[in-house]
Computed example of a mutant assay.
Amino acid sequence: EAVEHLGQFSVGRTASTGSVFGQRQHPYATLRILAENPANLGEDVVWDYGNFVDAGWAKNEDFIGNARRTQTYLIATEGTSDTHILKRGLALLRPDIEDFFRFIDIEERHPFSGTGNLSKFAEGLVKIDVHNRVVFLFDNDAEGVDTYKNLLKRFQFPVNMKAMVLPDLDELREFPAKGPCGVANADINGCAAAIECYLDLNLKGRPPAQVTWTNYKESLGIYQGALDFKDSYAKAFYETTQEDVESGVYDASKLRSVIAALLEECTGLAAAMLYSKS
């Protein structure tokens, strides 16, 4: 915020006032250039606004911590478990940016639960021209992928909205899956990978994780699958501590990939919005 208002910051021993090579440049761009230099990676970023307040150029209340509502992203998911897991995942893995993300209030129940309802919610927001930054997140299963593709076919999202599915991962390409012929390894990306599949599935005292094939999705020519005993994996995740994650006792690598994919979508959305205004 100090940069946005006043264009001054310092990185280690390097200072800038927003003027580079004689050209006026947004201070955020300068900060990015300095951050890309490996020599600066061990330095602290110091938001220096005290002198400006003392000089009367700004007021203390101009510099408020946490992300503004206009800077946040509303993440709309298929269900309560998706929201709970993502919120806790951000708190554990990326507490530095968790305040940039908002979720639908699900204290009592999810108002748009299920793939179909999330699709209708997305369509409704597009048609009423909502200006919030919104990302619609679908499961990486047959239902989610089918709905995601249909949304993209039916209408074009405005610049402030995006839809995505949970990312494909190599760890999910040889996954035990139970069907009419028994259990065999299968690629569950795009057909059975709900959010719980991105948690640590190697829990002490539990048998190996597997999915079970359910209904056939004719439009895609594949079966829909679901993770067996998925609530038990979610429960173990909710009981996980920061120390468990940092020490590697709890494997959060797949969840890190989910958050990285979400960040990529949000970054692209922000860039598209900025470009549309230029």
Score class of each variant (00 low, 15 high):
259 I>M: 07
27 P>R: 05
166 L>R: 08
32 R>F: 03
67 A>V: 01
266 C>N: 03
126 V>R: 15
159 V>S: 08
245 V>I: 04
271 A>D: 03
192 A>W: 04
249 V>M: 13
184 A>N: 15
163 A>F: 02
201 L>H: 08
269 L>I: 02
77 T>D: 04
18 G>E: 06
231 D>C: 02
236 A>F: 05
68 R>G: 09
196 E>P: 09
230 K>H: 10
60 N>M: 00
1 E>D: 09
130 V>T: 12
212 T>A: 09
219 S>N: 09
171 E>S: 14
168 D>P: 12
45 V>T: 15
149 K>Y: 12
29 A>E: 10
46 V>H: 15
164 M>Y: 11
232 S>L: 05
168 D>I: 04
12 G>S: 08
36 E>V: 01
12 G>T: 02
3 V>Y: 14
163 A>V: 11
168 D>S: 13
48 D>V: 10
71 Q>G: 12
180 P>V: 00
62 D>T: 00
67 A>R: 03
233 Y>G: 07
252 A>I: 04
205 G>M: 10
262 L>V: 06
113 S>W: 10
240 T>S: 13
32 R>K: 09
33 I>H: 14
213 W>N: 02
261 A>I: 02
230 K>W: 03
237 F>V: 09
6 L>G: 08
132 N>L: 05
55 A>T: 06
113 S>L: 03
99 D>E: 10
193 A>Q: 12
196 E>V: 05
45 V>Q: 15
15 A>F: 14
125 L>W: 02
56 G>Q: 00
160 N>F: 07
103 F>H: 08
278 S>Y: 10
125 L>F: 08
255 L>P: 15
95 P>Y: 05
102 R>F: 07
170 D>S: 15
198 Y>L: 00
38 P>W: 01
